[in-house]
Nucleic acid binder design. Structure first.
Length: 257
DNA sequence: ATGGTAGCACGGCTA
């Protein structure tokens, strides 16, 4: 089966590009972040026409996450209790025998920003909630836009990220806590070092390959042996038929059935 | 040079 994560930067602006991706790459399970739309306005036909069931946690203007699956979806959970502040950043469900958490983690702006304090609080609560809700014995995957580049090689220039969000020690320690709980970065072994999932729109970052690997799959140990491959579909960071791309590329995880 | 680009929604915030 093919599991995909993609921060689309508005499902409204990206409707045609997302259609193209679904038709060309046919994921079985599709996790989307940054819908930038309230739940009731998300174009369901985009998914229903292609045989997907869909669970949506939307919000006007910002954030918003969605899971689409070719198989039935059950046990849908929306939101990370007590730290949401009205922000739609987490949706979880069960589908295809997997427990799945789709995340859009806060970005943090700068180390001095209140947004960075919020990012740390979000991660602290996430670690707690995962521990309360799941067991390491389960077939569990956390995926989405973590806004953390875990290794120096996951940034185009680590020297520009000394004490800067996405590679700050205070968030790397929280990433490590997720690993210590019993999760593995499933993409790391398969994605070649120095490949990125995000490039800023500004300063020609994509053309200069100034990117970061911040979109991930974290799985329990029982998932590790099921992974066949992971890859970044870099081509979808390029303009398609004049349509602007998202600033993130889709990331695919292939699992043995 | 505190820049730059995109999206939401029409001024300013967020990334």
């Amino acid at each position: 089966m093919k599991l995909v994560t993609w921060n689309v930067n508005s499902i409204k602006a990206r409707r045609e590009v997302v259609s193209l991706y679904l038709d060309e790459h046919a994921p079985d399970v599709f996790c989307v972040q940054e819908l930038k739309m309230p739940t009731e306005k998300v174009p369901l036909d985009l998914f229903h026409e292609r045989g997907y069931e869909v669970a949506i946690f939307g919000q006007p203007r910002w954030n918003g996450v969605l899971i689409a699956s070719k198989a039935p979806i059950s046990a849908v959970h929306k939101g990370l209790p007590t730290v949401d502040e009205g922000q739609a950043r987490l949706i979880a469900c069960e589908t295809m025998g997997l427990k799945l958490v789709n995340l859009y983690c806060p970005q943090g702006q700068s180390a001095e920003s209140p947004k960075f304090i919020y990012k740390k609080r979000f991660y602290d609560r996430l670690i707690e909630w995962i521990n309360e809700t799941y067991s390491t014995e389960e077939q569990l995957i956390l995926t989405g836009d973590f806004n953390i580049a875990p290794r120096p090689i996951d940034l185009y220039d680590v020297h520009q990220f000394i004490n800067v969000p996405t590679h700050h020690p205070e968030e790397l320690s929280r990433w490590q806590q997720l690993l210590d709980w019993g999760l593995v970065d499933l993409g790391e072994e398969y994605i070649p070092d120095g490949e990125f999932t995000f490039w800023d729109y500004r300063r020609g970052a994509f053309q200069r390959n100034m990117g970061m690997r911040i979109d991930h799959f974290l799985g329990t140990y029982s998932m590790v042996e099921r992974v066949e491959n992971a890859r970044i579909i870099r081509d979808f960071r390029k303009k398609k038929n004049g349509m602007t791309a998202s600033d993130h590329a889709p990331v695919e995880l292939l699992l043995k059935d």
